[in-house]
Design a protein around this nucleic acid. Structure first.
Length: 430
RNA sequence: GCCCAGAUAGUGUAGUGGCCUAUCAUGAUGCCCUGUCACGGCAUCGACUCGGAUUCGAAUUCCGAUCUGGGCGCCA
């Protein structure tokens, strides 16, 4: 019976392990093999004069990254990593790896991201890379359980959609029988429809597709969005929800993924405060204008340079609030006291935007007016507007970029690191 | 969409017109080696993205193509 490497302790007499050949060192009469599985790496020591002929044959045959199953005596020894080593009675090659390898799993030689993504299955064998996806898995699990505990129901909405409705980004057209169709850029409108459906609290975690031709370390053309929508809530309610989520997720990772964080060199996961600063847009502009070389004025979008300046100033997660209505989408609810600003917000990490949300406009006629004022045609929005005519409660929500969350949490330099098989401007395989 | 940069063994690199039948590391193969842990030693193998131009001579300069990375706009 094969046991995980992590569970091989010096007090075991005998064990069978299975995994990949991480490294081999042949000293002549004595050879060492490092065998790696999901749980760790351990040393197999082969005194050539004392092992069966079959073992000698196998170790001559085996190559790096081959899959092997090794059974033998466990010896406690100071000289081996982990304080124990295995002396094989049998050494089976389950699957021999071809040579040369497309990249060096043992990380003696670095590989560029492109090379790594072309051989992602090998890349993920590296403990450091596997850690990212173990953390990502924990983030997703913590997010799900947090939202279920908060009384949300999980919904699934279509990714094949009829038209651009949220506006803004470009969509991918797809061949859909005789109709025109696109890949969904956001579940936003469907979430809102479910507010009219009386669901009150919904979430969806799923792919979003954006056909923007940007080529940066923080954009993907297929990303994972953590989306929520809440009835009878305003922007402040859902910002607080987001704060609780962030704290819960960071705490879960800090509690359960200490080894993985260590692999990534993250010594302080910087668990966000319960109450994050609310930085009004006007003040954000002031900070940016004060330190920026380019002129920035109220009403401008916050560019990458501005975001960086403000992020340095803030030093930790923060919200940007009180956005001008003019530069936010039509569905944002204008502020009661001052309609020139709206109840929209962005959650920022010092490095980049993580989430965007708002209290939504739930009043049909006002929504139509706002669609018009953005230069759009309400006729094209009929399927979206219909629910607003039959009892749409006030509601608010946000979308949080899962990859950006993992990226900033783990200190990754490229968002592609946070996705197993990223889709970017050029990459469609593997 | 705009702008910048790059492409050399499986991988990561050196290279600035002749000293390049191209450097180093890692790897692979063979030999030596019984405590390695980036094992060590010796030998061998393996590359200039493609097409054109300049030149006596091009990995190196120029033009084009292809592929790729990155920045910006925008956004999660």
């Amino acid at each position: 019976m094969r046991i995980p490497i992590q569970e091989v302790t010096p007090d075991l007499e005998k064990a069978t392990i299975a995994g990949w050949v991480h490294e081999e060192r042949d000293l002549g009469g004595l050879a060492f093999f490092l065998i790696r599985d999901r749980t760790g790496i351990m040393q197999v020591t082969v005194p050539k004069k004392k092992v069966p002929e079959a073992v000698l044959h196998a170790i001559k045959e085996v190559s790096r990254e081959s899959v092997v199953r090794v059974t033998g005596i466990i010896k406690a020894t100071e000289k081996a990593p982990g304080g124990r080593e295995l002396v094989p009675e049998s050494f089976e090659i389950l699957a021999k790896a071809a040579s040369p390898l497309p990249l060096d799993v043992a990380e003696k030689v670095p590989a560029e991201i492109d090379t790594r993504l072309d051989a992602r299955f090998l890349d993920v064998r590296r403990p450091r890379i596997a850690s990212i996806f173990q953390i990502r898995s924990r983030v997703m699990e913590a997010t799900h359980s947090f939202l279920f505990n908060e009384g949300f129901i999980n919904i699934t909405t279509p990714k094949v959609v009829a038209a651009a409705t949220e506006g803004g980004t470009e969509l991918f057209p797809i061949a859909y029988f005789e109709k025109e169709a696109f890949l969904g850029q956001s579940p936003q409108l469907y979430k809102q429809m479910m507010m009219a459906g009386g669901c009150e609290k919904v979430f969806e975690i799923g792919p979003i597709f954006r056909a923007e031709e940007h080529n940066t370390v923080r954009h993907l053309n297929e990303a994972t969005s953590i989306d929520v929508e809440v009835s009878f809530a305003d922007h402040e309610d859902v910002m607080q929800l987001l704060e609780r989520l962030m704290r819960t997720v960071y705490q879960a990772v800090a509690d359960d993924c200490a080894d993985q964080l260590a692999h990534l060199g993250v010594t302080d996961p910087a668990i966000p405060d319960t109450t994050l600063p609310r930085l009004p847009y006007a003040e954000a502009i002031e900070i940016a204008a004060r330190k920026s070389e380019d002129p920035i004025a109220y009403g401008d979008d916050l560019g990458t340079a501005s975001e960086r300046i403000i992020g340095e100033e803030m030093g930790a997660h923060y919200f940007i609030t009180e956005w001008p209505t003019a530069i936010r989408p039509y569905y944002a609810m204008p502020n009661e006291r001052d309609p020139s600003i709206c109840n929209a917000f962005d959650l920022m990490h010092p490095r980049m935007e993580l989430s965007s949300g708002a209290q939504r406009c739930h009043i049909h006629d006002q929504l139509v007016e706002q669609i018009r004022s953005k230069g759009l045609s309400p006729e094209g929005f009929e399927f979206y507007l219909k629910p607003f005519r039959y009892g749409m409660p006030p509601h608010a929500g946000w979308g949080l970029g899962a990859e950006r969350l993992v990226m900033t949490m783990c200190g990754l330099q490229n968002i592609r690191e946070a996705v197993l098989f990223p889709r970017d401007r050029h990459r469609v395989t593997p």
